[in-house]
Amino acid sequence: MANIIEFQNVHKSFGELKVLDDLNLHVEPGEKLALIGPSGSGKTTILRILMTLETLSSGRIIVDGDYLWHEEKGGRLIEASDAHLHKMRNGIGMVFQHFNLFPHLTAVQNIEQPQILVRRTPKIEAREKAMELLGLVGLSDKQNHFPHELSGGQQQRVAIARSLAMDPKIMLFDEVTSALDPELVDEVLNVLRRLAADSDTTMLTVTHEMHFARDFADRVLFFDKGKIVEAGKPEEIFTHPKEERTRNFLSKFITVT
């Protein structure tokens, strides 16, 4: 099957700092990927480049058959225009570490507004879908609460519902539980576990929760210094890591067995 995401020789630097170093990555439609690795290894940067929040320094990315950061004009590849980026973003959604809900809107409004503005969904349908998704994340009774009236875990579940409402082909999750109190982590991870099991959406998650990575992912990528050091099925990576660096990294998460 054709890849839904392809990174071809992608480099990314912030000034002198090389963050992604000749990255090549292929993701199949519907695949669930977990990106793990030490702090600063470039995991977030990968998601942000896919979400067009960060440019790349060189290389190509193909998403669903189209260049993400380039477009073809007169047989030449040129830098993507705003219009092209707008078109490409339609298929991609992202959930952030700090939720980034709209604080001036209620839970249900947070989920319905993007549908109305971006998808041009009629208001009634958007509301129905928002309520359905609130149900999916277990928050039907919180529809009229503002974000500041919800716990962190609840806010993050609303953010997941908001992203789902746009029906993205690709969903990106960047450490979605690392800003949460420990007792709220599971309610969010369980939502994601269910999503991963039930949906055909391609999902990439950056996480430091190894148990979760194991349940969630079809494939785990271990990053270090802007490169993929090792990739494989969760069972392989977590039980028989081949690389020394992977073993070292995983040994810090002693609870993973």
């Binding site: 929040l53 992202m94 980034n100 993007p114 503005l117 971006v118 908001r162 746009m166």
Partner: peptide
């Protein structure tokens, strides 16, 4: 900045 990024991720136009 998070609000800018969330609205970009949801594909809002600059005006929106």
């Amino acid at each position: 900045k998070g609000q800018h990024e969330a609205s970009t991720a949801l594909n809002y136009t600059v005006y929106q």
